[in-house]
């Protein structure tokens, strides 16, 4: 773990260099998607929405070591809140993002208070139960959420009163990309803050953290709140850009899928979360259309292979190569 701490230790270099590099990389990738695949923008917008959920899961699983199979709840609550607010008359997209953020945060705090109380099996089961409870409510409160038909007819207004949402989801895509860049930069700062580092410490050895006087539970709940906010933004973005919110956004399958994405990319790195989302979603887009059962076989095989051969995700070899290169550069 020492190499990771080295990277994240405060460094005296150009201020904001890392953040700027991160933002530019995402923007460059986004531009590639925008110009090379103009027909697939709806899919790419959905991908960005899911990326928020995976980032959010990374905050609790990768940075705090919480094993959860109910994380879609935060995403879904954000999506439903934004959708309902939009139908009831709040049409400004930025305000809707705020609605999603607040709803996600509240949901995150509630589930965090329940889930992070224990570790191991009880934690896992509680996370599943919370997720299923939210899914059950979303299905049953059909006067509010549309039930199994889903919530439709979400027609947000123009972004800043200028850019309207079009059927090619150009606006939706660029809007989502911009929000992703901002969120990513903020999160990069956040995970290297004293609070973020302490969460990492709790993950590595919670007993030792307790011994040096850290109260673990409130920190984990707070982290869950932040994760809920990120997931809520993602949910709201998805609701705004697709115009519908379905039960799939709170489903157990969604929770399991994002966990797969996170571990595929590499838990404990923000870049790992993004890489995993992009690889998984594109892979799914291509294969699952052909045959859902072949898709399941391949995902299963992929998961087994990751756990056996690359338990730290695909990002780990890239990161170690990067560290080696930068160190060599310094030595020379």
């Amino acid at each position: 773990m020492s190499d990771i701490t080295m990277i994240h230790a405060p460094q005296k270099r150009v201020p904001f260099a890392q953040e700027a590099a991160g933002a530019l990389t995402i923007l460059a990738l986004g531009a590639v998607g925008y110009f090379l695949y103009p027909d697939d923008l709806a899919f790419l917008t959905r991908l960005i929405g899911i990326a928020f959920l995976v980032l959010s899961l990374d905050l609790v699983t990768g940075y705090c070591g919480v094993a959860t199979l109910g994380h879609a709840a935060q995403f879904g609550v954000g999506a439903y809140a934004a959708g309902i607010a939009c139908i009831r008359g709040v049409t400004d997209p930025v305000a809707l993002l705020g609605v999603g953020l607040v709803a996600g945060t509240i949901m995150g705090l509630i589930s965090g208070a329940l889930i992070t109380r224990f570790r191991g099996l009880p934690q896992l089961v509680l996370s599943i139960a919370v997720g299923q409870l939210v899914a059950g409510l979303a299905n049953k409160l059909s006067w509010l959420t549309g039930g199994s038909d889903g919530l439709s007819g979400i027609e947000p207004g123009k972004v800043f009163g200028v850019f309207g949402f079009d059927m090619y989801s150009r606006t939706g895509y660029l809007f989502s990309l911009a929000v992703l860049v901002i969120t990513f930069v903020v999160l990069q700062r956040f995970v290297r803050s004293p609070f973020g580092l302490m969460c990492r410490g709790i993950k590595d050895d919670d007993l030792r953290a307790k011994m040096i006087g850290v109260s673990i539970y409130p920190r984990l709940v707070a982290m869950y709140g932040v994760a809920g906010a990120v997931a809520g933004i993602g949910g709201a973005l998805t609701a705004i850009s697709t115009g519908v919110v379905g039960l799939d956004s709170v489903s157990f399958e969604r929770s399991a899928e994002v966990l797969v994405m996170l571990v595929l990319g590499g838990a404990g790195h923000l870049w790992g979360a993004l890489a995993g989302t992009v690889i998984f979603m594109i892979f799914e887009h291509v294969v699952a259309a052909a045959n859902p059962f072949h898709w399941m076989t391949m995902v299963g095989l992929l998961l087994i292979l990751i756990v056996v051969f690359a338990p730290r995700g695909l990002i780990a070899p890239v990161m170690s190569l990067w560290t080696k290169m930068t160190r060599k550069g310094k030595a020379a």
């Binding site: 070591g65 934690q123 966990l259 399941m296 076989t297 087994i304 756990v307």
Partner: peptide, 21 residues
């Protein structure tokens, strides 16, 4: 537990796919 969860979910998906095939 995370690795156990992932591996056994992987096994589940794999079995579902194969059995239905």
């Amino acid at each position: 537990p995370l690795m156990q969860v992932l591996m056994t979910i992987g096994i589940t998906f794999f079995i579902i796919g194969i059995v239905n095939f």
